[in-house]
Design a protein around this nucleic acid. Structure first.
Lengths: 202, 202
DNA sequence: TCTTGATTTGACCATCTGGTCAAACTCACG
DNA sequence: CGTGAGTTTGACCAGATGGTCAAATCAAGA
């Protein structure tokens, strides 16, 4: 294992290559379905070499998840109490949908983890995530009190945004099997936008 | 392997026990994450005994998926062109949500498969499923032409129903981590019902 | 250039896992 | 109750897989 000093040029490069490869592999096959050899070869390293940078398969997975959690939650974090309610929500949705389009691997990484009961991130869910959701939920609630948007169950409103946007990344194969050549995201953006405008207009 | 005659009492019992056990295991850990031993012991059989009833792990998985596909698509199949448009759609949604509540294992079984690119059911998606969706999509379209419901992209409308309802089964851990004690399905039903009423009312 | 720490690797190991097989056991029915 | 088909199992195998290790190679500062 590399010493605990400032990372060398090579360390930086290889760690990054490993995480990138791991994202590919884990998001496509899940934790159990991925092998260290697969990740190593995708990263252009030998297996022992990879294990020189991360102590175990589990460690790579953990590093990936925790490294990406912040990115993943950033859009919700940015929901601004001071902004225009409907606009804030619509642009949150827009960003989430864009993430499904541009970061589908990240979405599927979390999806894989969640569907299987989130054995490795249960903690983050009931702490960080819950806190964030409750906080933003309160903001939504305030907007509803002020009559700025229609009154609905705030938690379910947030769930619905996650469900609708992440669906296009997580179940991409299914969506494409049905839509054929059509670009899923064109129609999705339009559809979802309409949906929330109608739902939330007081 | 059991002969190809009429199944004996024991064959019926054991085959059923195996599929039930496999549903538990596969839905919780995915295909690759599940072991034949796990399924066997959950079914109360030894591994060789299990493999006497099904030729391979893959065969169990396939049998499960194809056996459940019909159940899974039944609600959409039941969408009745002759019924009242909004009511038909709302009751489709209601049934889907009920399935998430009562058959979460089935939902997660498919979710696991889909997130990982549906390697084993790609075929069913682009054939049976596509045909069904296109057919029902046409019904929705007709209703829109008649001004019975608001005009939206029909495929995305169907996707949204899948996403919103299955989310509660597939990402159950996350939902519960955030809601705490509250029963997810109470609020969900109410929320989703409101959402589609507002969206589809012309 | 030399030295020392960082990096890489081939060989190896223990365990897990899907699957096989022959022998043993059980059941239903004549 | 005897018998043949149906059922069950312990022992076993081959390949995959996560991980280790000592030795070899490389890189950068003195």
């Amino acid at each position: 294992m590399p010493k605990d000093r400032a990372p060398t040029r090579i360390q930086k490069k290889n760690r990054a290559a490993i995480l990138e490869a791991a994202l590919n592999v884990f998001s496509a096959h899940g934790f159990r379905g991925s092998t260290v050899d697969q990740i190593a070869s995708e990263a252009g390293l030998s297996k022992p070499n990879l294990l020189y940078y991360f102590p175990s398969k589990e460690a790579i997975h953990t590093a990936l998840l925790s490294g990406l959690l912040e990115t993943w939650l950033a859009p919700l974090n940015d929901l601004d109490e001071e902004g225009d309610p409907l606009q804030e929500i619509l642009s949150y949705i827009h960003r989430k949908l864009q993430m499904s389009r541009e970061l589908p691997r990240e979405s599927r990484l979390f999806a894989n983890e969640l569907v299987q009961g989130a054995p490795r991130i249960h903690n983050a869910l009931s702490n960080d995530l819950k806190v964030l959701v409750d906080e933003k939920s309160a903001v939504l609630s305030k907007w509803m009190d002020q009559g700025k948007i229609a009154r609905v169950h705030t938690h379910h409103l947030i769930f619905s945004i996650w469900a609708l946007t992440q669906h296009y990344a997580d179940f991409d194969v299914q969506v494409r099997a049905i839509l054929g050549e059509e670009d899923p995201f064109e129609g999705a953006e339009q559809f979802i936008d309409t949906l929330y405008r109608k739902l939330l207009t007081p």
